[in-house]
Write a protein that binds this DNA or RNA. Structure first.
Lengths: 250, 250
DNA sequence: CTATCAAAAATCGTATGCGAAAACTGGGGA
DNA sequence: TCCCCAGTTTTCGCATACGATTTTTGATAG
């Protein structure tokens, strides 16, 4: 081994993130952009991600680095990193020497993602259940009530958004940060996929809110974690199945 | 479509100047390496990842870009991408303007990861079960037999490696590529974590191979997917529980 | 001897520029 | 008419260089 690297890994074992707060500097990105995030790579990642998720860059949209650089005012290097991260997230597909484009999903993958999410969410819901305070349960119940309202107003978009908010309200304090991260990534994928193939099974939403209430009841009465997991998993798996029934063509 | 026209690449505002040519056959830079491994970013990713997973770069090891660049012969740009991807994988922690270091895990996270893996693996095993041919089942059974052999020879490392091989032999043909990707990432995390806190519960391995056989039997006789999922999930969750019992301090 | 501050070192962040690989386009031959 | 091939264009890949920020250290006052 090279003796040169002997001084590595010795410094500052604490290494915690320092709360830096330094403004002033480059002329390109507007000042507020920097305050929100950190590096331009980070900002670019957030920007591209939000644009993909809100549909500005639809499925199949080609993300050309030079073009994006000119558009956002940053150079290609931060954009490259952002695209790589989005690639890891599964939101864009990158081909060497060809380019990157927003991922295109087939409808069957929505079901796949829902099934994966069912498992993760079931587990997360179960381990978070004993940690929830009555206040938090009430807040979740209130979100569910707003879902009913969105349903009455025939607002599928709001319903979907609230659905996500509902589930995150349950496992937002999940002790396993990695699990939270996986859930967020999977929800993001799902949100984007639903933009590709807009899927909405009519009868499903009504049952969904009923199941939400059931889950909350189980949590409230301190039910067994295994049962909560089973119910929460079945809840989302039922959505996947409903989708499968509605679109057997794939 | 619409994205096609607005390009205006705007290149080569500069004429011909400073034709610097570099032709050094460095460690990663030789021409034939490109055909084998892809881009240098990809190669760097694979290299760093393998070194982290095989323990060359242990937990907490500081990954200094300049040093890595000098060591591997590539510039910092591909290394940055590699580190970002490893960050997404959860194998390294990157702090802005500070540096990257190999992630350090607490023993409780091994249990968390095992629990997550249990859910994903249970589902994957279930949906792959009807797709397995008798030959493939026989191959999996043979791997399980080698696990028994490793157990008789008191070779925990080989046992762990075979355990991974066994499970991948079942869901290697999983129709959901994303699920495969998640499983691989989670296994990688787990492999690395086990390097941090070497965990091995004595009695667990024997039961593990028995449960493997049980899972194979269920697959062979075409059992219900729900039952296969339940058993496969319980199999790995039992490992997590065994760990929890053995180390209540974590 | 300790605390504080300034200068220096170390490290990351990103802009610029050039080379290389793939796609596109046009012309020539079967 | 269709296929093949060479030149052009577009785009990514990455090496270098410089700027920004953080940490460390050495000197100095208390």
């Amino acid at each position: 081994m090279t003796a040169r690297g002997a001084r590595t890994a010795e410094r500052s074992a604490t290494g915690a993130m320092a709360g830096v707060r330094k403004d002033e500097g480059t002329a390109l990105g507007s000042a507020k952009d920097r305050s929100t995030g950190g590096s331009k790579a980070e900002q670019s990642y957030e920007l591209l991600r939000s644009r993909i998720l809100d549909g500005t860059y639809g499925p199949g949209y080609r993300l050309v680095m030079n073009q994006l650089a000119q558009e956002t005012g940053v150079s290609t290097i931060p954009l490259r990193e952002a695209l790589r991260r989005l690639q890891s997230d599964g939101l864009v597909e990158v081909v060497r020497n060809i380019g990157a484009r927003v991922a295109v999903f087939e409808s069957v993958q929505v079901e796949h993602s829902l099934q994966i999410l069912a498992r993760l969410e079931g587990y997360a819901t179960a381990i978070c259940a004993p940690l929830l305070t009555p206040d938090q349960i009430a807040a979740s119940r209130e979100i569910n009530a707003r879902m009913v309202a969105a349903l009455d107003e025939f607002d599928p978009a709001a319903f979907t958004a609230l659905n996500r908010t509902f589930h995150f309200s349950i496992y937002q304090h999940c002790p396993d940060a990695h699990l939270r991260s996986l859930l967020e990534a999977e929800w993001a994928r799902l949100d984007h996929m639903r933009r590709s193939t807009f899927t909405y099974v009519p009868g499903r939403a009504r049952r969904s809110v009923v199941e939400h209430e059931h889950i909350l009841d189980l949590i409230e009465r301190g039910a067994d974690m295994a049962e909560i997991e089973r119910v929460a998993c079945a809840h989302k798996a039922a959505t996947a199945d409903a989708l499968h029934q509605a679109k057997p063509s794939g």
